[in-house]
Amino acid sequence: MKHTTRAPGGNVQAASILGVVRPKRRTRALLFRVGELLESYSMIAPAYMVFLVFIFIPVAWSFYLSLFDYSILSLKHPEFAGLENFAKMFGDSVFRVSVWNTVRYSLGTVPARLVLGLALALLLDQKNLFGKNFLRTVYFLPVVTSMVAASIVWSLVFNASEAGLANQMLKALGFPPKGWLADSKLAMLSVCIMSVWKELGYVMTIFLAGLQGIPLELYEAAAIDGATGWQKIRFITIPLLRPTTFFILVTEVIGSFQVFTQTYVMTGGGPGYSTTTLINLLYTKGFFEFDMGYASALAVTLFLGLLLLSWAMRRAFRAEEIVY
């Protein structure tokens, strides 16, 4: 053992002697290494140049802008404002309403997607289910369609007139028609229904992938022990799906705080401010009122809020896991 460990040392010595004797080879090796490094860096350069110009600089700029009074319409230079934008924002009742609306949207979509998505995945995960592929395709179809097109069609579904599909169905069931998107009390609910419809197939697919990872032997063992179907789900499937569930929960919550397209297309944030979300407000402030400072303060707040939220969710999840 000792002998073999000593051997490389001897080689190094020999090499250095060789190096002294033949310096050319060493410089060549060095040149080769430099060439290799340059080659490697040239291969990653395009990606990191894009990151630098279009992500890293904008992130820093976003924080910087949030401290300035800046409108791209006026010719005057940005003026340092300290935390004024943040003070203005937290004092703004529209901001508070839009936070509340965003939370409402999140609560109205995430739990429904998780529960329905899991239920669908469990129902569709059976081996000898007739028409499984067809059903999966149908459930997944909304995911691939464009959000704009889906929102426009759903704004007809939820049209306040009697011709809207939602009102036609109410009528068939013997209920009076509702205002849906035109009713400030129902507008957010309508947006939530549409959003659950749109993304349900996605959640289902991720759960289905998670279900594939659960070993079948566990179910077989449980069956021998006389477990019922529900017990298998309760004590095997759900606990073993925890990583998947956690992943979906975090991405869905973070995604739901960035809702924009649906509300922009279906309601424009209205009626009143009843469906104005944080990103709707950011868009209005930044690109209609051109108050880039305020809009940046909003963006920074959202960013920090989301970081905090995902950190909190991760912690809560871990804490619960220890209890388990």
Partner: peptide, 25 residues
Amino acid sequence: LFYLALGTMMIPFYVIAIPLYLVVR
């Protein structure tokens, strides 16, 4: 470099939309 690449995934697009607009302009 790898962590920087991963970090880009954590930044919501809406957060950088305004400065990105200014860059592109």
